[in-house]
Write a protein that binds this DNA or RNA. Sequence first.
RNA 1: CGGGGUGUAGCGCAGCCUGGCUAGCGCGUCUGGUUUGGGACCAGAAGGUCGUAGGUUCGAAUCCUAUCACCCCGACCA
Length: 505
Amino acid sequence: MSKTKTKSAIQPTREEDYPEWYQEVIKAADLAEVSPVRGCMVIKPWGFGIWENMQRVLDGMFKATGHENAYFPLFIPKHFLEQEAEHVEGFAKECAIVTHHRLEPGPDGKLVPAGPLEEPLIIRPTSETIIGHMFAKWVQSHRDLPILINQWCNVVRWEMRTRLFLRTAEFLWQEGHTVHATSEEAWQETRQMLDVYADFAENYMAMPVIKGEKTVGERFPGAVSTLTIEAMMQDRKALQAGTSHFLGQNFAKAQDIKFQSESGELQFAWTTSWGLSTRMVGALIMTHSDDDGLVLPPKLAPKHVVVLPIYRSDEEKSQVLAYCDSLERRLREKSYGGVPLGVIRDDRDIRGGEKKWYHIKRGVPLRVEIGPRDVASDKVFVGRRDQPKPSDMECGEFTANVAQILDDIQDGLYQRALHLRTENTRDIDSLEEFQEFFTPQSENKPEIHGGFAVCQFHECEELDEILKRLKVTIRCVPLDDQSRPGTCIFTGKQSQQIGVFAKAY
RNA sequence: CGGGGUGUAGCGCAGCCUGGCUAGCGCGUCUGGUUUGGGACCAGAAGGUCGUAGGUUCGAAUCCUAUCACCCCGACCA
């Protein structure tokens, strides 16, 4: 055992080459693959199943907080994007543009674009402008407010680098857009949705997050304030997992979203927007998976239990399968996390070991192996994805406790992730220590190092340069920590706030 | 968009420098057999316009030119 134990299902291991490990986990779990289209991925059923669960949970949360779903066009007329100055500047470089509406055969027989459009159409990188345009029509009176809208859709941002789920030219997300009569109410909405995201991350993804505010440099283009949830991946880098923006009156003024107040005067409205994308699937992978492949938090797993019948003769087969039928029936009556327990059976005619590893690599939380011996003793052989060794259980005990076992896995994953973050978060009060913290031992092939550094700081150009050199970014100013006066550890200037610093995706 | 690299079977690669029989290897696939509470073994088989277009040559995966795509390092980013 000790001899073979060193070999993991995924190679390289996290320690050996984290980025490569990440790619291999996706491949081994059959979540997605690169497409023939530059920068775009194909999400395969197992990966899309995770996203569907994310959608289901989040959609429920949005509706519980009073939001409604709607749909707006994929195309945005170019001049819409030009309305808000900072917004244009932030997104112009990464826009895909449609300039024609027809194809015609060219001289060499190949199709060439014809019928140029009078005004080019931008493929939405985000929908503030098109939705704001509609809002301007919908809002007349204070009685029309608030407007609480969410849309599930795809967006395109023409990025240079591609990493499956983390950064692709096209990705899926939800974007919430709301309009309010007062600044206070819009702020409250911005905070509320950040809390919804944090709730989702911690209680469904089992991923601890830090809630914070982005600094000016990291803010959403056009926003007054951007709130974020930041998570630590297993390579100790930070991943921005969701953002909620207080847009103030910037977009309302740019797009003329006005209403008549109770007292009859015309006022600009206050807007917010908030979004969370398929990047969360990447976050989930990098938070929990191990050197044997994907590990899924049960609350978002497309399936919870896989039943693996084991038999040789036809006689054994009928016995074992009958037993599986009855077990599966009982399991399907159960529910977990508000949905029926997801049970699948794998009775493909392949070797048992191969089959077992197939499901380990895909991250199915529970494997139940049933052979003639188990049938005879009314036991099941239960393998938990979060534990190396399977164990025998009374069949009745298993079916009675399956939800609790899944909860236990869910909780264990959260605790493990929280532990990693706690272990690798450090309060730092000198530049020397900061540099040491973020400098790998070996320069050529940097080992996993660093983490979250919590430091007193003051935003300025000098700080930007230091951070750029170290490839570190300010993740956020944590909301939980009250601002406190002190000295910037980088420049010695007066400082009013502390920040979380990390290398980031 | 700058700097570097790679395109050869479904996947991973060798061959290229120094041009030469019918382009190889590993994994996977298929067939047969032996196995069977564990990612097995043996034997056999299928599968390639060597990224694309042009050029040099008696002869090009190999040399030259152009082009496209992808990867890595920068700049940008949910």
